[in-house]
Each structure stands twice: as C-alpha cells, then as structure tokens.
C-alpha cells in the first residue's frame, strides 16, 4: 500500500507536469460543453422533448476524458515505461510491475472523475441544466465505459512494438472516436449515414448508455450497448494479459 500511495503521488505529479492530460481530459470537455451551451442554450433536444439538448449532450461530453485517458494517455505511458525499461526495473524489486500499471489506471480514473465533476458543474451553474436520470445507473454506465476504454489502452500500450507504433495506434483510435462517436460533434446532428458508421465505434455505444442513464430514459435499448462494452473489455483484458510485453 505504501508503494502504491507513493507512486500514485509521484506519477500524478509527473503526469500533471506533462500537461497533455490537463488539456485533453480536463480543459477540453469544459470548452466543448461551453461551446455547446452557447450554441444551444436551453433549447429542447427536439420539438416536444422533456429535456434540453445540453442535458442530452452531458453524457457524451463527460466521456471525452475517458476517451483521452483510455486510448491516448494510458497506452502512451505504458509503452513508454516499457521502452524505458521502467517496468523491467520493477522485476528486480519486491513489488510487481503490475503495481505501476494499476497506479496509471488510478491516475486516469481520477482525471475522468474530475472531468465529470467539472463538466457537471459547468452545465449546472452556467446553463442551468438539471440531471434527470439516476446517478447510480449513470455511474455504473460510466464505470463500464471506463473499463472498456481503459482495456483498449492497456492492449494498445501492452502489445505495440514501440512507442512509435503505440502513438500511431492511439491517433487512429483517438481522433475518429473523439469526433465521430458523439463526444464533441453531437450524435443527434450527424446525418443518418454517418450515425450508422458511428454506431460501430465502441464509444458511441458507451455514450448511448451514458445518455439513457443521465436523462432517465427507458432502458429498453440498453442491452446491446452493455454487451458491446462488456465484451470489448473482456476481449481486450484477455488479450492484454496473454500478450502483454514487459520489455
């Protein structure tokens, strides 16, 4: 526990020093939320809707930090630490290198939670939106989305040959998901054809879950997204454990 605590503190400091997660996971979601707020104000999501467009977007914007941490931050730090032989150094200590991976997961979880709170405060305070769903269900969905996104990150970071490969894979995963899964560009304003393509992205499914739970909508259609997210997590975790390279 002492090792975990000390590493968490130091690795968090290092991560903050790097600034990239502060920008992509903390600042960016707030900026996106503010822009959407300025554009849509208190307009309803559609004619006759009981909730506003902003309230509908909350779940999506809250997922930006999960996406940034899971498919950008986590895989890069894992491949970097392996490449620098930092993971290998742990093998000649009493502590397993798994610990440092868990520390990183904890750090990106913290980023995601802080971002969630800040995005919530932003919509609540500045745009007067309310949260109509169940927090319990929403947090459950959030946890599931986090689990599956982070498992993608572990897979990419754990099996890519070097940092360059990891960077390439991260860009291929991160930018399309950021733009087309509905985190920044709202899913509802996409043309039907684009929505169909977006549906194939795991995060799109995750965001559907976040929307349903945050708006308190009927949970009829949630089975598919839940299965997709859970299956993805199981698959990625399984493959990571099997093929993870420590050096």
């Amino acid at each position: 526990m002492k090792a975990f605590g000390t590493h968490f503190k130091t690795e968090l400091k290092l991560s903050l020093r790097g600034m990239d997660m502060v920008i992509f996971a903390i600042c960016m979601p707030i900026v996106v939320m503010v822009i959407l707020g300025i554009i849509y104000g208190s307009k309803p999501a559609f004619d006759g809707a009981s909730y506003s467009f902003l309230e509908q977007s909350f779940g999506a914007v809250a997922a930006i930090a999960v996406c940034a941490g899971g498919v950008m931050g986590l895989p890069l730090v894992v491949s970097d630490y392996r490449n620098k032989k930092i993971l290998k150094r742990f093998k000649v200590t009493p502590v397993s290198p798994t610990m440092i991976l868990l520390v990183q997961v904890a750090i990106y979880t913290l980023y995601a939670v802080v971002s969630l709170l800040l995005v919530y405060i932003t919509v609540r305070l500045f745009f007067g939106s309310s949260f109509g769903g169940s927090w319990l269900q929403f947090l459950g969905a959030y946890l599931l989305v986090m689990l599956s996104m982070f498992s993608i990150g572990m897979l990419v970071g754990g099996v890519s040959k070097d940092v360059k490969t990891a960077q390439l894979l991260c860009c291929v995963l991160y930018f399309p998901m950021l733009i087309f899964s509905g985190t920044t560009l709202p899913y509802e304003v996409m043309p039907k054809a684009l929505q169909k393509v977006a549906d194939f992205m795991p995060l799109t499914q995750g965001i559907k879950l976040l929307k349903v739970t945050s708006l308190g909508l009927s949970t009829d259609g949630v089975l598919l997204p839940i299965i997709v997210m859970a299956a993805l997590a199981v698959l990625c975790i399984g493959v990571s454990i099997r093929f993870f390279r420590w050096e």
Binding site: K2, T6, T10, L14, R17, Y81, K84, I86, R89, F90
Partner: peptide, 19 residues
C-alpha cells in the same frame, strides 16, 4: 531507466517505497 521529468528526490522516494 527513469521517467521523463522525474526529480532526483522523487525517483529515490519511489524506489524507497518498494522496500
């Protein structure tokens, strides 16, 4: 093998925490 941007005291502290 050390982290980018890590300070001497931080690297020592991390290492010490393992034992």
């Amino acid at each position: 093998s050390y982290q980018e941007k890590i300070l001497v005291c931080e690297l020592c502290e991390e290492t010490a925490s393992l034992y």
